[in-house]
Amino acid sequence: MFLTGEERWKVIRLHVEDQIPLAALARETGISTRTLQRWRRATPLSARSSRH
């Protein structure tokens, strides 16, 4: 499975903005918790607050 940056943000946004735990996202999406942790860490802080 390959996701674009925008698709990754759609998943990570649920954690960053809606406070959904990464473990819950991992179960719902089938993406490993470790991968979600990497994506979150790779998301610049400015993008976290400016994207909608």
Rank of each mutant, 00 (worst) to 15 (best):
F2E: 01
R51C: 13
A23C: 12
I20V: 15
H52I: 09
H15W: 14
A47M: 13
T43S: 10
R41P: 00
R48C: 13
P21V: 08
T4V: 06
E6R: 12
R51E: 12
E28N: 09
W9C: 01
Q19I: 01
S46Y: 05
Q19L: 02
E7N: 01
I12A: 08
P21H: 08
L3Q: 04
D18E: 15
A47F: 05
E28A: 13
L45T: 06
L36K: 00
R13H: 05
L45E: 14
T33C: 04
T4Y: 00
V11K: 09
R48N: 01
P21S: 07
A42I: 05
R34L: 07
L22K: 14
A26I: 09
E7S: 00
L22C: 07
A23H: 11
R51A: 15
K10N: 11
R27V: 14
S32N: 04
A23S: 14
T33A: 12
T33H: 13
A42D: 15
T29D: 01
T33F: 07
P21L: 03
R38P: 08
L14N: 11
G5M: 14
E7G: 05
D18H: 15
D18Q: 15
M1P: 04
K10V: 10
L36F: 07
A42Q: 08
E28M: 13
T43R: 08
F2C: 03
P44F: 03
G30N: 08
R34W: 02
D18K: 15
P21F: 01
E17C: 14
S50D: 12
T29I: 09
T29N: 02
V11F: 09
R13T: 03
H15I: 12
H52T: 08
I12Y: 05
A24P: 00
L3W: 09
R41H: 12
E17T: 06
I20T: 13
T35Q: 14
L14S: 11
A24N: 13
E6I: 03
S50I: 10
E28F: 06
I12H: 05
P21W: 04
S32W: 02
L36V: 00
R40V: 14
H15M: 11
M1L: 06
T35R: 11
A42S: 12
R48A: 10
A26N: 06
R38G: 05
R40H: 12
G5T: 06
L22P: 07
A42E: 13
S46M: 05
G30K: 08
I20R: 11
M1K: 02
E17K: 15
E7K: 05
A47V: 11
R40C: 10
E7F: 00
H15P: 00
L3V: 02
P21D: 12
R34Q: 08
Q19K: 14
